[in-house]
Simulated assay, not measured.
Amino acid sequence: MTKKYPLDELSTALGRIMGLLLTAEKVDHAVQHLSRAVTDSIPGTLGAGVSILDPHARPVSSGFTGSMVERADALQYELVQGPCLTAWATQESILIHDVATEARWPNWSAAVVDFPIRSVISTPLIADGQAIGAMKIYAATPGAFEDATAALMELFASPAATLLSHIQTAETPERISAGLQTALFSRDLINRACGILMERHAIAEDAALQQLMRQARATRSTLKDVSANVLAGVASHPRRGSSDGLR
């Protein structure tokens, strides 16, 4: 039977989880903290995982307590089926009493048949009426969880989803800014490399870019890497222009 939590014990567990999330600076850190805290707080849990999903059900940030949990979740995304994705899509908790006899996700159940997983609960993370992901727990024995365990998971999930959503929103401008800086840096590298080739070979900008692209295909590199090599060659041999490998 699942342990029935008295109110003070439940409050302590929730307070610990919320405290961990509030001190997390990044979404990735927060979901990892939450996974560990849920594992420690719910009796019978072999492992736990938390995934924040994008609108296409692709994981954006994920936290796991072990490689088994990580692989079991990865199989859901690869097969596009499983309790975590269903909980996220339906915004309802999913309880599996025995994976060995579970028929709702036959491909996923067959894929994890050799895993030490028999009982599962997946609970959606809902913030402002939208499911942003799911948290899940696994147990090695059948019948390890019951409706009361699912209700406990939902108590954890509600405030956790709100905090994760706030952390994620706060991170978004930083991630966009970092991506923009990377894009601008790459464009600058390519432009500078084109300028060097234009001067060296007296060719137009389009021709210089085509040379970079051919070199990238030939070496299975990116335009950014090839451009960086051109600049590095100029820096290493300022009086010799042949080190970039482009003619």
Rank of each mutant, 00 (worst) to 15 (best):
I17T: 14
G82Y: 10
F115T: 00
Y77V: 11
I42F: 03
P59C: 03
A148H: 13
V80S: 05
V112F: 01
L34Q: 02
A148D: 13
T90W: 01
D73R: 02
G44L: 05
V31N: 08
E154A: 13
E25L: 15
L152H: 10
G143L: 04
M153T: 02
P59M: 01
E25Q: 13
L79S: 08
G143C: 04
G133W: 01
P106V: 09
K26G: 04
P43C: 01
F64I: 06
S62P: 02
A37I: 04
V60E: 11
W88V: 05
A37F: 03
S61E: 07
S62N: 09
I137M: 01
M135S: 05
L34M: 12
L155T: 08
D114Y: 03
D128R: 11
I121F: 03
R104W: 08
S61G: 03
R16P: 00
T65R: 06
S109C: 14
D128Q: 11
G63V: 11
Y77N: 05
S11V: 12
A150F: 03
Q81S: 14
M153L: 08
A131E: 08
A127W: 04
G47W: 13
T45N: 07
F145V: 04
R16V: 08
I96M: 09
S119F: 12
T23P: 05
T101M: 05
A140W: 05
T65N: 07
T45E: 02
D73A: 12
P142E: 08
V27T: 14
D8Q: 11
V120Q: 06
Q130K: 11
A151Q: 09
Q32L: 09
S51V: 13
G66L: 05
E9H: 12
A24D: 07
E102W: 03
E92R: 15
E146C: 09
I94D: 08
A87G: 10
E9L: 11
M18V: 10
I126T: 00
I17A: 13
A151F: 06
A100D: 11
E25V: 15
K136N: 14
F115E: 08
I121W: 00
Q81M: 12
A87N: 02
S61Y: 12
S109D: 05
V27W: 08
L14G: 02
E102R: 00
A140E: 15
T23H: 13
G129R: 07
Q91W: 04
M18Q: 10
A140F: 06
A30W: 07
S41L: 02
F145E: 09
A110Y: 01
L34T: 06
I121S: 03
D147M: 05
L46V: 09
L20D: 10
N107E: 14
P59N: 02
D8W: 10
P116C: 10
I96Y: 09
S67Y: 03
P142T: 06
I121T: 04
E70V: 11
D8S: 11
L10T: 01
G44R: 00
L95G: 05
E102H: 07
V80C: 07
Q76D: 01
L79N: 06
A89L: 10
I117N: 06
A127I: 01
G49P: 07
V113K: 15
P124M: 01
M135H: 03
V31S: 08
P116D: 13
D8T: 07
P55R: 10
V113C: 14
V27S: 15
S93T: 14
V113R: 15
S62T: 12
